[in-house]
């Protein structure tokens, strides 16, 4: 009975997370990074004459490089604290978790530290990507055979035509 009362009192005084403020922060910073990515896309297609199909890959590699270096400088942690979910939902967060884990293990040497601990956090992402890719892939394969799901569209790069316009 007493613990029941206690939890009720605790719940009343618990700090409520300010949903709107946190979501707005994540929205702003996440959107900003995506805007930067889109700018890189434009830059590569228009100024460096990269083929439209490969420009997204270059853009991803560029942002991964930036995130890794910022993590090395210790700046990405600050960005992650300010930007809330904007820091870890994007692919920059994946690069950050790899680099941060690798840096953390540096004191234990190159093989046992950097290489072994690199995937401490990001390994789960790869595991779930393989699992979901396999099972949903199997599902889509049979649905395509039955004519329910659409077959693969090889023109997924059409969005870049809009960038060019």
């Amino acid at each position: 009975m007493k613990t029941n009362q206690y939890t009720r009192v605790i719940k009343k005084h618990e700090a409520k997370p300010s949903y709107f403020k946190n979501m707005a922060t994540a929205f702003f910073f996440g959107g900003l990074v995506c805007l930067i990515g889109q700018s890189f896309l434009w830059l590569y297609v228009h100024l460096f004459n990269v083929a439209e199909e490969t420009a997204p890959t270059y853009m991803l590699v560029t942002l991964i490089l930036i995130a890794s270096v910022l993590t090395g400088l210790g700046l990405y942690d600050q960005f992650g604290q300010v930007s809330k979910a904007g820091g870890f939902v994007l692919i920059t967060g994946f690069a950050n978790s790899l680099t941060a884990s690798a840096l953390e293990g540096k004191s234990e040497g190159i093989v046992q530290g950097i290489a072994t601990q690199m995937f401490k956090l990001a390994g789960a992402v790869i595991v779930f990507a393989v699992l979901s890719g396999f099972f949903f892939g199997l599902l889509r394969y049979f649905l395509v055979q039955l004519g329910i799901a659409p077959a693969l569209d090889h023109q997924t790069v059409t969005f870049l035509m809009e960038v060019v316009r």
Binding site: Q38, L41, M59, I91, A129, R140, F159
Partner: peptide, 28 residues
């Protein structure tokens, strides 16, 4: 992705999406 470009390619969702895409491409 067609609609939002980098706005859909940068979130980690696109990782699962491209895993599926590669799998379906080879499955053909």
């Amino acid at each position: 992705v067609n609609f939002a470009g980098a706005g859909a390619q940068l979130p980690i969702m696109s990782f699962g999406h491209s895993v599926m895409h590669g799998a379906m491409e080879a499955a053909e």
